[in-house]
Design a binder for these strands. Sequence first.
DNA 1: GTAATTTTGACAAATTCATTCAAAACAGAA
DNA 2: TTCTGTTTTGAATGAATTTGTCAAAATTAC
Lengths: 100, 100
Amino acid sequence: MDSLGETIRKLREEKELPLRTVAAYLDIDQAILSKIERGQRNANREQVVKLAAFFKIKENELLVSWLSDKLVYEVADEDVALKALQVAEEKVKYNKSKRK
Amino acid sequence: MDSLGETIRKLREEKELPLRTVAAYLDIDQAILSKIERGQRNANREQVVKLAAFFKIKENELLVSWLSDKLVYEVADEDVALKALQVAEEKVKYNKSKRK
DNA sequence: GTAATTTTGACAAATTCATTCAAAACAGAA
DNA sequence: TTCTGTTTTGAATGAATTTGTCAAAATTAC
């Protein structure tokens, strides 16, 4: 249940790479990557895709991690957080079945 | 499974009230309310609370409707939408248990 | 200690978002 | 059709949020 930040920090440290290296690959300032890893900034979709490629892990898994982080952030400090997530699931399922 | 917009439009039309009346209560331009009802704009939390009071319905129900709309919007056109919602649920549950 | 790396925060730029307003579109009644 | 009230649209503005840059401070490793 790691956040995106925790995940990529672990991967980076496993390979003993400095922020600089990964940041260069993503074409962003290392300060931003530092913040992303610690959850102070959100990555954008493009960056997530690049990160998956860089670390050679499944793109979809990282996207799920990233998206779910955003969702958690969105419902934070709402009492109805869980309920809202469940209803959102229903709505997505419903839309999917309808779109066919 | 109505969206917030559909819900409040129905309520307003049941009572045969013009946009003007409800908009005045919310202290916003009627153009905005029109857009909120048709899902072209997001309401903010405060407006949702006021709407619940105005129509005398449960605040939490309307908040769930509003929040879940935002979540659906956030994951729209992502293949991993459902998965992300499920993982987000797990994360929220986990955070809740930890925060005690 | 030095050197490399990471974190922080101030600032600027860019982008997104909300709001206002007036005109256009629409609906119903006469 | 015209009159009246309502709703929708879109352009323009302003506010707020996000995003990136940079350099200095803090931390870590040697």
